[in-house]
């Protein structure tokens, strides 16, 4: 079954206070030269579908439930086992 990764961020024009707070903390920790920090969500799920059917189902899930299109933007892709965020290093 294809494994799908979905990345969700607040829309660019919206204030992300979590990202802002993190960005402000970084220089104090010695991490200079970092800007425009945005913090979102990463979802992974297996979907029993292929091709256009897979795309239609993922889009429908994202638009109707997994994200809120009023405030969030997302991208999704099919990933291999070693592309999982929790893959063994």
């Amino acid at each position: 079954m294809p494994r799908v990764a979905i990345d969700v961020l607040l829309k660019r024009e919206l204030l992300d206070p979590q990202g802002r707070a993190t960005e402000r903390a970084l220089p104090d920790l010695g991490f200079d030269g970092v800007r425009d920090v945005r913090i979102g969500k990463h979802l992974e799920l297996e979907v029993d579908a292929e091709g256009e059917d897979l795309a239609a189902r993922v889009e429908a899930m994202c638009a109707g439930f997994l994200t809120n299109p009023v405030v969030e933007a997302y991208r999704w892709r099919v990933i291999a086992e070693d592309e999982r965020a929790d893959a063994a290093a």
């Binding site: 607040l10 919206l14 204030l15 206070p17 979590q18 707070a21 809120n68 009023v70 405030v71």
Partner: peptide, 17 residues
Amino acid sequence: LCEARLLPGALLRNERL
């Protein structure tokens, strides 16, 4: 109600967290 689109907009984390 916002999630259900019975009202417009959305409610996000408070500005000062």
